[in-house]
Amino acid sequence: MNAPTNSTAAPVLSVRNLTTSFRTDMGIVTAIDGVSFDLAAGETLGIVGESGCGKTVTSKSIMRLLPEHLTIYGPDSEVLFEGSDLMKANERTMRRVRGDKIAMIFQEPMTSLNPVFRIGWQLEEALKYHTDLNRSERRERAIEMLRLVEIPNPEHRVREYPHQLSGGMRQRVMIAIALCCEPSILIADEPTTALDVTIQAQILDLMASLKKKLNTAIMLITHDLGVIAQVCDRVLVMYAGRVIEDASVHDIFYRPQHPYTQALLESIPRSGGKERGKRLPTIEGMVPSLHELPSGCRFSERCRYCEDRCVQEEPDLLRAEDGRRVRCHFPLSTDRTAAARGET
């Protein structure tokens, strides 16, 4: 499957046919199925989709952070990074990649920071592992990193424990640790979901300035479409383990081609309370269970445009000339979308 190529930069990461299955009590379930995409240097790629669609499994598969004994990767899955396939890399290589080259931050910073060690020590440990700085250089760099993530008073803060920091500060410390070694890719899985909007704004602002400074490529997983609209360049929409649409953020919001993307966007209240008190369009029904996926299009049971062909045969993820990709037998035209939104 072709992924769109970004004309300006060669991709730093190419994911091809990534398929991840789990052994479970109820047999083998395939959580993500044939996921392919490219990530360019300095690009922020958003990943959205309903709970359980495979966003976290995608990012953890790339990092090979899933429990090895329960996980089965597809035979032709590839994660191409710096000329080699991470799917074939050994654990030692992977350990160097994680943290050194590709860093990941998770939703709950409290569980990722060790509560019994001081902030400074945790940063210095990361530096010790990934750089050859000496002790005093590491101490200096730790303070510098805290300053970079805009923690006030870093000389003082390095001596504090995680519980002495606010949620926003803890998340910034996590970002500082993740960025210690100036990775070329940052994977952020719901980095602001547990935080308040004013703190979220700090984190997003910080990620934007780091991207500018270090040209880091960012994969941002979030369910907040407002965040996607404000910070992403491109968006991957997932549904039941499949990529169903991939387009620029503008196209996703203004010209979605997949009926699921369209329905998802319609169901959020408009900013500014423009349609106060009106009923919101909803997507009826539920995401299909991974154990009983429909044979045709995975969205067919809930799709308002579903036709016979959709139930019989699953559409491929097709790439148009402009680089957009959509997995639908009857992609929406611009007019149809506008009409459905009531803005003719």
């Binding site: 006030p152 606010s166 926003g168 500060m169 909007v197 004013t198 979220q200 704004a201 700090q202 997003l204 602002d205 907040d224 479409l225 407002g226 965040v227 609209a229 404000q230 910070v231 992403c232 953020v249 503008h250 996703i252 919001f253 203004y254 966007l265 959020i268 408009r270 900013s271 500014g272």
Partner: peptide, 25 residues
């Protein structure tokens, strides 16, 4: 006003710097 300014708008064509408050709660 800070809450309104920090609230990300669902529109990629209306990007604006989010209002970032200094200091902690």
């Amino acid at each position: 006003t800070a809450l309104l300014g920090a609230n990300p708008i669902n529109d990629p064509d209306q990007r604006r710097p989010l209002v970032v408050l200094e200091g902690d709660v």
